[in-house]
Nucleic acid binder design. Sequence first.
DNA 1: AATTGGTAATACCTTAAAGGTATCAAGCAG
DNA 2: CTGCTTGATACCTTTAAGGTATTACCAATT
Lengths: 308, 308
Amino acid sequence: MDIRQIRYFVAVAEERNIGRAAKRLFISQPPLTRQIQQLEDELQVKLFERTAKGVELTSAGQLFLNESRNILSLIEQAQERTQRAGKGQLGRLDVAIFGSGILNTIPDILKRFKTAYPGVNIVLHQMSKAEQIEALRQKRISVGFNRLLAPLPDIDSTMILQDKLMVAVRDDHPLATKSLINLKELDNEPIVVFPKGARPNFVDLVSRVFQEAGVTMNITQTVIDAVTGIALVSGGFGFCLIPSSASVLQLPGVKYIPLGGLPDNATVDLSCIYLKDDHSPLLSAFLAVVHEYKSQLNHHTSFSAARE
Amino acid sequence: MDIRQIRYFVAVAEERNIGRAAKRLFISQPPLTRQIQQLEDELQVKLFERTAKGVELTSAGQLFLNESRNILSLIEQAQERTQRAGKGQLGRLDVAIFGSGILNTIPDILKRFKTAYPGVNIVLHQMSKAEQIEALRQKRISVGFNRLLAPLPDIDSTMILQDKLMVAVRDDHPLATKSLINLKELDNEPIVVFPKGARPNFVDLVSRVFQEAGVTMNITQTVIDAVTGIALVSGGFGFCLIPSSASVLQLPGVKYIPLGGLPDNATVDLSCIYLKDDHSPLLSAFLAVVHEYKSQLNHHTSFSAARE
DNA sequence: AATTGGTAATACCTTAAAGGTATCAAGCAG
DNA sequence: CTGCTTGATACCTTTAAGGTATTACCAATT
């Protein structure tokens, strides 16, 4: 049995006339007659009664007509869905995020992607940097969001943005009135740092900055993520240096003040990582959204810079 | 797209190796490679990633694998169901019955047919003789049960049994004690007859019998069917002649007594009728059951005749 | 670094089957 | 009885599926 034969059968059943059906199918009548005969032979069932005016369906033929329509429609659907899946418009994308990365940029990107590809089911996984890399290699995830990556041979990354540093400070502290804090002003002040976990990470960046500026760093706590660090600031444990994108988080009694007097490379990047040899259309589609987001981000910041 | 290609695709997806799949399909590797390429070209989707050890499904391929399995299973089902329909094991059979015909024989036949062909949905219609013939011609029904048919050019019939005549009589009537009533004993007695409707019918048979025997027939009521007639006997309206198969009906105060002194042709047949040019397997199957029923009926009656 | 074993891809040929043309046989309307 | 329409058959052409031989590629191993 053959899809062609099924198509032919449906045409004949609908036209109730082999010659007319042949015209509709843009073939001549004899091969159509033969295909129908073959179909009947194979099924060992008479599908049509031959009459003087044409043909008419037997009851078995009527049943087979229904089934045939189902089959053709299922095939059509399969083709369409497969093509959509091939364009990355359908399927499932497993994405890893890290603790505080969820604060603003990542939700924006995910929201854009969901709008552009509503057929794709996004599944989020909270994972540390090391876990993300392992999960990528095991193909449990397709993309991970992260900061401060060391290059790896099998993993590519795309930098999304570079956060400058800010200081989280209690609003009853003398420095809280300033619009810019110089690193030197934090000399020997109590500092909460994060995260715990695989190096290199944000702590290393902060340490390097202090070291290069010759400022003493007085670490009082090392906590798991930015949210916890800022909560400790709110609780009076001291200062906390954060990537500026974490400043969307509002906690009672906490103010965020830009940190000045730093070298240009004192930034922390947000990147997304993915397997170098993953050519799936879903990933490509996702990265396209990321790049679009990135370029709009640049335009926007240059605009606001021009206005200021 | 082609069912063959779908089968090939499933084999390759399952073996994750084109060469192995080719062996399983009893073809050589190159044409299989080509068929898969064609499928990919047609869908414009890469279904497999080619690796050193074989191939592996892309996510679009995974989706298409699911769809393919659905398609193949639907095709298989369609073939099987169509073949069963072709053997008359599946479908719908519209059967017409008449008022009192439902009393014993017809339910027996229907029961047998339902046991032998459980996949067939039997739909019953109550119809008079004339209605049945019209419905047959319009193909609203496939079989009708009836009595006393006049032959028609486009309709065939099969006689199922011939009922002898019996008399329904109130049990308080003097004749009710007899084991056989002679027609002459009904001379000028009040008689209820049935049915109303298209001739020839049961009334005509009864009238003819009276006439040929030279007995005066005193019709007091003409009612629609046997059940009503017997009910009137129960109500004291007189006698009622019935086909013996209607004697399974028990009503208070009514006895059935065989009618004697009649010619051999004083019987009323039960037949089923159908279109002469209906060659549907469902009808054939049904008629086969009818014939089987008939032959068993004959064996049974000859046995009981032998024993008596 | 070269080799070998196993993979899919390609080139070229053979064979099977689908399609086309011409014609026939059957049934119905005039 | 005669066209006219229908599906069926015979025979040829063309398309496409399948086979054989070979190549290109990758990875694991020596």
